[in-house]
Design a protein around this nucleic acid. Structure first.
Lengths: 211, 211
DNA sequence: TTACAATATGACTACAGAGTCACATGACTC
DNA sequence: GAGTCATGTGACTCTGTAGTCATATTGTAA
């Protein structure tokens, strides 16, 4: 957590620092990112930086907190009473919210994605791992509930399905972008529909579900 | 490409260098990896290193080449006459081969995965991007062919499905490991079956496919 | 005006990185 | 033995890094 001196700062100065940090961490992973550059770009002195933050990690974790808070604002509405809604509708709405977040907050997305990528990094374990466990529990509960209500095939594996849905939620962004997070196009709902359709029905031609 | 001096080296020395480089790039992404450490660990002098390789990137690309060649050895058998076999069988066998590779060559896997992860890195674009395009073309042809033979629903999107299958092939490893590439368990075929089942039939309870 | 605390500053330390270069060594030919 | 060429060497340069600290500035309260 940043120190009081940081939060006591006039808001424009504080924003300049956050702005500079976002830019730096957007372009570089934690180890690559340079506090020197952040200091330079935000126009504060080195000494001041260390009066605001314990170290580079302190600042970084603060940014991640901002990002998580922001993303939660998007996701939570889709999670109201998830056990009373149609399972596929809940999953759809969550992914839709995630895409909206990606569209609205591209730099947040980029920083978050960077963190998610390096699963071997100590920071990943420190910041992400446990939250991910919680997410998996939520997904598992959703799947289990939907099975009990007869919405899902009875022979599927709950944990496996939960993980698939989790991976879906992280990969859907890359599905919509040809791998460069810059050009998020407008056919998001189209791609989301295709994905939901695949999740529900698969792609094999069967007696029940022909063309 | 390494210089002739490298290939003229006595094989034990050459292997020591490759070994040291694999270790370093296994533990660190390209930018983090230290040539100094590779030099130290392989017991050669700094000057020699630069007589073998143009620079750090030269060595790295050589390793990637070894990795790609190794992976191809696993995958190609599954790709013999792909248009005459059952579509799901081909996909199954390819993924199975990929998992075998992951099991047999964990350090290759780790280095390769690291490279795949940082899609923003210049090296990703230099090394991966075009190969990925080619992979997508192969997958697309497979999907299209299977549709024409009536194996797949006629209403699916070829490009989308090809991308799903591509993502599947990269994500299946993480599905089998709870995110640490160390403990690849033995229930690989089980997970692969579940994944193939999902791809084919989805998870929704329908008239055609109950329980 | 004085006194004191909070904040600001940037030169500085200590370290690590990639890559260079003048020189040393060893092998092979004449 | 002399000459030549490929290869080996490590001290060195240059650049960048995170973090520190003695000193200066500012704000506030008496």
């Amino acid at each position: 957590m940043p120190k009081d001196t940081f939060f006591n700062l006039p808001s424009d100065k504080r924003e300049r620092i956050v702005e500079a940090a976002l830019s730096e961490f957007e372009e570089n992973a934690f180890d690559q990112a340079s506090t020197n550059k952040i200091i330079e770009q935000s126009g504060i002195s080195k000494g001041s930086f260390y009066q605001y933050f314990d170290d580079k990690k302190d600042l970084y974790k603060y940014l991640i907190q901002l990002i998580v808070e922001s993303k939660l604002k998007y996701i939570t509405p889709a999670m109201q009473n998830p056990f009373n809604h149609d399972f596929f509708e809940v999953i759809h709405d969550m992914n839709e919210a995630g895409l909206k977040f990606a569209l609205d907050q591209p730099r947040y997305l980029k920083i978050g994605t960077r963190l998610m990528q390096d699963k071997n990094h100590a920071l990943y374990k420190e910041i992400i791992a446990e939250n991910q466990e919680r997410a998996m529990e939520v997904y598992s509960a959703l799947v289990k509930n939907a099975m009990e209500r007869g919405e899902l095939r009875a022979d599927i594996d709950v944990g496996f399905t939960a993980r698939i849905i989790f991976i879906m939620s992280t990969e859907i962004v890359s599905l919509t972008t040809n791998n460069s997070y810059e050009n998020l196009t407008e056919n998001l709902t189209e791609i989301l529909d295709k994905l939901m359709n695949l999740l529900a029905y698969g792609i094999k031609k069967t007696e029940g579900k022909n063309d």
